[in-house]
Amino acid sequence: MSEIEKSKVNIVKAPDGIEGPGFFVTTMDKAVGLGRKNSLWPLPFATSCCGIEFMATAASTYDLGRFGAERLSFSPRQADLLMVMGTISKKMTPVLRQVYQQMAEPRWVLAMGACASSGGIFDTYSVLQGIDRVIPVDVYIPGCPPRPEQVIDGILEIQKLALNETTRRRNQPEYKALMEKYGME
């Protein structure tokens, strides 16, 4: 213990619970939330400029690994966080929807940059005006493109959601209603 305290490594605090000699009791939700929070597997759905800024975030200077999210999952089946970075055109929309639907629960969506959030400066016939028209979004990051610090801030917001998410989310009526709104199962 003292060795770790001396080093720069941060260990997350254990959730509230009852502790005694040789045992520790807490709720399942809290333990699972803690795990999920600190090991997000993002799927970088990078289409344009924001993707380059995400590369900078993931690279050496900003190092996304400090937040436990450096394991990029390119398969939607094994990702919990869909990071949509860049303009989504109408031609791309069905692809994005399909990727989202392939993801397993729990899943969060991060819209990075103005284009993904609202269409940005591209108010044109070929661009989808914000991805929240086709899939639910949890966190929006403003900027065109956002700075790496902002991306990290967005990831931290997702971490807060992940920490407090109940393990039974998909059974909740609110969640079912949300999915129904987007025409998904």
Binding site: T47, S48, S89, V95, F122, T124, Y125
Partner: peptide, 25 residues
């Protein structure tokens, strides 16, 4: 064409100095 954003059409509706922001992208 998966991120076609219609730059050439936008340029026909913007002033000369505003088109610079399009060229960034």
């Amino acid at each position: 064409g998966y991120i076609h954003r219609a730059f050439e059409k936008i340029a026909e509706h913007r002033n000369y100095y505003q088109i610079t922001t399009l060229t960034d992208r």
